[in-house]
Structure formats: structure tokens, C-alpha cells
Design a protein around this nucleic acid. Structure first.
Lengths: 128, 128
DNA sequence: GCTATTATAGATATGTAAAGTCTCTAATTG
DNA sequence: CAATTAGAGACTTTACATATCTATAATAGC
């Protein structure tokens, strides 16, 4: 099990926007070159972030992507969920036994992980 | 990203052995039926646990799998590592920037997760 | 309004890893 | 020796991530 490269691209893109260009739009071309990934693929990833309201897109010449106004609240977990989906890390017990003790342990661990990622905001990394 | 079904099978198998048959060998046939998985596939998974010393195998008639003598120490993390491998959940930064702040956050979160899973022993679930 | 630029959408392709099967071999019991 | 059981290796199938390609839609600047 691994986080996807797409998540990696999404995190780095948002961090870049926050650090380098909080206001003016940056084209996917530039963002893609920086990360050595194809523009069309990155664009597909960024569209997910747009739909979740984390970034805005502007079509047309001099367009690109900007952070949404409330970007200060964006957490690592938000970005991960936007890209990877929100389903549980662990699918246990074919017939979905609600009392499965293994499931309980795994879900509790997952919650701990999510709490830590929820408390880490992109804006925390910009301040320094 | 998800934990594999193989991990699920491994966890359930070890818990079953701990609860129902801490000493006498149980054949893969029976273990597989319980979990609705093919015996050869489950056997492949259990062989990994044998190699990590968590369970023992006995060939021949009336053979099967038993827990190793020190099974009381086996943690969720041990089993997960045996099946999924030990590599990091997050591969960041193509050129492996050692100062990447995103990587730092992700690795720290992963460590938190692993700590919780390391502290959960299979034996904790048997006592109740 | 025209053209260049840029994002979005959809279809399709490729690569890789998980999940599972099949068959043969090795070990053990009785 | 025969029956039973685990282990090993080659192989297949399935699913999903990772793209790529092409066409469409929106916007800016002239």
C-alpha cells in the first residue's frame, strides 16, 4: 500500500502556489515542468482540487490556477481525500461483521493517522 | 491506497490460531474455507509469516500451521510488514530532496500510525 | 469578431501490482 | 508405500494507477 504519485503532485502543487504565487494564476504547463509530469495528466489531478474548492482555475490566456481564498484551512488530509478518495484503508470481513476486533483496531489506527494529517495545514509550511 | 486483502487474511488467520488452536496444527484447507479464499493462495501468504517466524508449519498428514512459541509478542505492525513489506507509504520528491517539508509531514504521520499498530498485539485481542 | 492561450472532458493506451490458479515437489504420518 | 499436507514456480486474470491524445469550452488581447 502506498500513496499515489497523484497525491504527491497535488501536495507539491498546492504548496508551490501557497509559497510562490498565492494570488496570480500559474499555468499547468509551468507546474508540470517543475514536477516532471505531463501537463494533461497534472491538469486532470488539479481539476479534482478545483472541484473540492481548494484551488480555482481560470481559462484563457494568462489563465491558470490560483489558491482559493480560504486556502489557509487546507490540510494534508483534505488534499489526500480529494485525490485518493475517502474510503477506508482497510476492508475487513467479507460479510462485514460489525464486531470484528481486527477491524476495530485498524479503523482506530486509521483515525489516528487522519487526525494527524488533518491538523497539518499547508499554511503551516509556508510560515517558516 | 488500501491495505491488501492478503494482509486481511494474514491477520484473521493468526487471530484464529491464537484464539482457537494455540497449539495443535490447523491445515490451510480449513483456514481457507473459513475465509472464502483458495488454499493455494492462502498458503502463499502464510509462508511469508512462517519465514518471519510468526507461525510454524508442519508438513505431512495431520500437519498444518501453529503459532510460534513467542506469539504473544506479535503485533499488527509485524504482520502488516510481513505481508506488505516495509517500504514507506509515501514516495516524495523525484530527486529525493532530504529537506522536503511535505515528506517530513508524511513520514511523521506514518510513524504515528506505525507506533499505534506496533502497540497492538494479537494477544491483546485474545484475552477478552 | 478573430486568434492565441489555457483549462476540461472523454476515450484510449500502457504499466504494474494484487489476486488467484495450476502443477509439481518435498516432507511427514501411519 | 500411500495418503496427506506445505512449499515453490510459472502462469493468468483483474484492477488500478499513470499516463496520452484529441476535441471542446472559456477567456484575454488585439
Amino acid at each position: 500500500m502506498k500513496y499515489s504519485k497523484a497525491t504527491n503532485y497535488a501536495l507539491h502543487t498546492i504548496l508551490f502556489l501557497a509559497k510562490e504565487a498565492p494570488n496570480k494564476p500559474v499555468g499547468v504547463q509551468q507546474l508540470a515542468e517543475m514536477q516532471n509530469v505531463s501537463p494533461t495528466y497534472l491538469s486532470k489531478i488539479l481539476t479534482k482540487l478545483v472541484k473540492e474548492g481548494m484551488i480555482n482555475s481560470v481559462s484563457g490566456a494568462n489563465g491558470g490556477y490560483t489558491l482559493s481564498h480560504n486556502w489557509g484551512d487546507i490540510s494534508f488530509l483534505d488534499i489526500i481525500h480529494a485525490i485518493e478518495g475517502k474510503s477506508s484503508l482497510f476492508d475487513c470481513c467479507l460479510y462485514d461483521d460489525p464486531k470484528c476486533v481486527i477491524k476495530e483496531v485498524m479503523l482506530s489506527a486509521e483515525e489516528t493517522l487522519e487526525n494527524e494529517l488533518r491538523n497539518k495545514k499547508i499554511s503551516d509550511l509556508v510560515k517558516k
